[in-house]
Design a protein around this nucleic acid. Structure first.
Length: 453
RNA sequence: GCGAUCAUAGCUCAGCUGGUUAGAGCGCCGGUUUGUGGUACCGGAGGUCACGGGUUCGAACCCCGUUGGUCGCCCCA
């Protein structure tokens, strides 16, 4: 590589081949499942005014304080590449008057940007699928959203992840719990890890899932959210869990599961690979493949009316890692021409077959040997070889011009050719006059269609 | 932001304690062979050994810096 060639931006990826197929499989499965649950597709801008994220995520969160790709546009306005979907969707809900559709179920997917140090399963430009239910305060909304997530993972063939579920309570419950945690950990502050001492100021809830051995002894006896839940919050959580049981979604209670962003209330959840599973190994130190929760307070922080909402997002790259590399689809047919004079015949034959719905490999020309080699890569069920008669003693140039069919031969190592043979000839009749060789059913002569009379 | 580790051909890698013109496999290009075609053989192109300094008679190899990759911490999907 020349040193003049610009490098890709750190933390971006060029995805190709089996990995790209896995990525596409995740997106396609998501699109299919989201329709089953009748979530409506939305397309969102990739950037927003910086305040959209600053106000909704909370100024002090790491995402806002150090991970955003922000820049001033030519008018001097601060814009930011979206670090998550929810804030932008909330903004759209408010600015477009989508209240009229509430309760509104929407889904989207696309790239997100976070200025982080890349590592396994973490990128600066990464991709998520996302689902939100806006304007529904009922626990049934949480249940349906989680049921969709559960079904999606199963349809992706991922069976060794489990729903970890917690409640953060309503705003009052959460505040009381937070205060109690500050009290409790503040009393032993000197014994905590440096990181947790810092978390005590910024985000005491996060101490609960600290991995530092110095913090571990204090975690078991830390105050539990359950002691601070209001009756309403308790009832809400109970409704969610019983709804999940009724829907057949397996879950475990995760008392120390919290959300990183400030706007979450009530339900918080993550799908996490089971310990020691293949998925856990595939993800490295990342654990969550799908996470979300209820964010009843978000709309108000953006200046809208109080609107309950719940949603989740999942990293496509992480899901793709669990799905594993996928083979590219094999070809139904490969069209190969054996003679320079067949150049345009190749595309005519290939196009005719494609219009009949077959996926057809064709080369752009080159030597027959190369074409055969490339065709083998595509592993077609049937190889279709095109030839022309050649001028010789008995076949003059003159005769060639009046009687010059494309000679088509079918070859295959697959038994399916038996039933495909008929379909191929029928399909080709849409573009050619086809006369099958009486002595060989795998051979036919193609001529331009005769004018209909 | 912090830490560890790595960087040799398009790809995957080898290169002994620093010692002549830096190698292999695959891929690519050309040819022969085969001839209903994934064979075999022959030949070829392609590397300022990431970049910049330093040590040395001599550096792909040792030292420093930079850039980038990978993995982990923080945080997060």
């Amino acid at each position: 590589m020349s040193k003049k060639t610009p490098q890709a931006i750190r933390g971006t990826q060029d995805i190709f081949g089996p990995d790209a197929e896995a990525f596409a499989f995740v997106v396609e499965t998501f699109e299919r499942v989201r329709r089953l649950y009748r979530f409506r597709r939305v397309e969102m801008p990739v950037f927003e005014k910086t305040e959209v994220f600053a106000r909704s995520l909370g100024e002090t969160t790491d995402v806002v304080s150090k991970e955003m790709y922000s820049f001033d546009d030519r008018g001097g306005e601060s814009l930011t590449l979206r670090p998550e979907f929810t804030a932008g969707i909330a903004r759209a809900f408010l600015t477009n008057g989508w209240q009229q559709y509430a309760p509104l179920k929407v889904a989207t997917h696309g790239p997100l940007f976070r200025y982080e140090r890349p590592q396994k399963g973490r990128y600066r430009q990464f991709h998520q699928i996302d689902a939100e239910v806006i304007g529904a305060g009922e626990p049934q909304a949480d249940v349906e959203l989680l049921a969709m997530a559960d079904q999606l993972l199963k349809e992706l063939g991922i069976h060794d992840v489990t729903l970890h579920l917690n409640t953060l309570g309503d705003a009052d419950s959460r505040e009381a719990w937070r205060a109690a945690l500050i009290d409790y950990f503040g009393a032993v502050k000197g014994n905590l890890s440096e990181e947790s001492q810092e978390r005590l100021e910024k985000n005491p809830l996060r101490i609960l899932d600290s991995k530092d051995p110095r913090d571990k002894p204090f975690l078991a006896d830390a105050p539990k959210i359950d002691a601070f839940l209001s009756d309403e919050a308790q009832a809400f959580f109970a409704a969610v869990t019983s709804g999940l049981d009724a829907a057949g979604v397996k879950w475990v209670r995760a008392e120390s599961l919290v959300r990183g962003l400030d706007y979450y209330r009530h339900t918080a959840f993550e799908f996490i690979p089971d310990e020691g599973s293949a998925s856990a190994a595939a993800l490295g130190s990342q654990s969550t493949v799908l996470g979300g929760g209820r964010y009843d307070g978000l709309m108000e922080s953006l200046g809208g009316a109080a609107t309950p909402a719940v949603g989740w997002a999942a990293g496509i790259e992480r899901l793709a890692m669990l799905v594993g590399a996928r083979e590219e689809e094999k070809a139904d047919f490969a069209v190969i021409s054996d003679h320079p004079r067949c150049g345009s015949d190749t595309s005519a034959v290939a196009s005719t077959l494609r219009r009949s719905g077959f996926n057809v490999h064709s080369s752009f020309g080159g030597k027959a040997k190369k074409q055969f080699a490339a065709a083998r890569e595509a592993d077609p069920t049937v190889r279709i070889v095109l030839r022309r008669w050649e001028v010789n003693e008995t076949l003059t140039q003159e005769k060639l011009e009046t009687d010059d069919p494309i000679i088509v031969e079918l070859r295959s190592d697959y038994p399916e050719i038996a039933e495909l043979r008929f379909e191929i000839w029928e399909s080709l009749r849409c573009g050619f006059d086809v006369s099958i060789d009486a002595a060989n059913s795998d051979r036919a002569f193609l001529r331009p269609p005769s004018p209909r009379t």
